[in-house]
């Protein structure tokens, strides 16, 4: 297990003055996708492109593609399953994440 500089986010020498965060919205660098134990899978045949999954997602994981389908971006998806429970057509199912 490496110690110190390799495990820490930054060393004390790199900490900005006053511990200010100089960039807005930089939490996009923190990938919360590895919290997930279930993964949402979309069945495009059942999807009616209503966008319920997009608006109800607490992690802003859903984005619309060119065809109008809402596709999950697994970088931030925590696998809570809200999208599957709000889907009016049952087009989203949660499957166990494989390691």
């Amino acid at each position: 297990m490496p110690k110190g500089k390799d495990t820490a986010l930054m060393s004390w020498k790199e900490v900005p003055f006053g511990c200010y965060i100089l960039e807005s919205g930089n939490s996009v660098k923190f990938k919360t996708g590895d919290w997930r134990s279930f993964r949402p899978v979309l069945d495009k045949e059942k999807c009616i492109k209503c966008g319920q999954c997009y608006i109800m997602c607490p992690d802003m994981s859903y984005n619309q593609d060119e065809e109008g389908y809402y596709i999950v971006d697994l970088t931030y998806c925590k696998g809570c399953g809200i999208c599957a429970s709000v889907c009016p057509k049952g087009a989203i199912t949660m499957v166990v994440e494989e390691v």
């Binding site: 919205g25 930089n26 939490s27 996009v28 660098k29 923190f30 990938k31 919360t32 919290w35 966008g51 608006i55 109800m56 997602c57 607490p58 992690d59 802003m60 994981s61 970088t75 931030y76 925590k78 696998g79 809570c80 399953g81 809200i82």
Partner: peptide
């Protein structure tokens, strides 16, 4: 006509299925 912009960025550390952060985002 939902607004496209997201003033709240992903990568926050709310629990799975948090309704509070969803309300904040909306």
């Amino acid at each position: 006509n939902l607004p496209k912009e997201e003033p709240f960025a992903p990568g926050h550390r709310a629990c799975q299925g948090c309704g509070e952060v969803l309300a904040l985002r909306l």
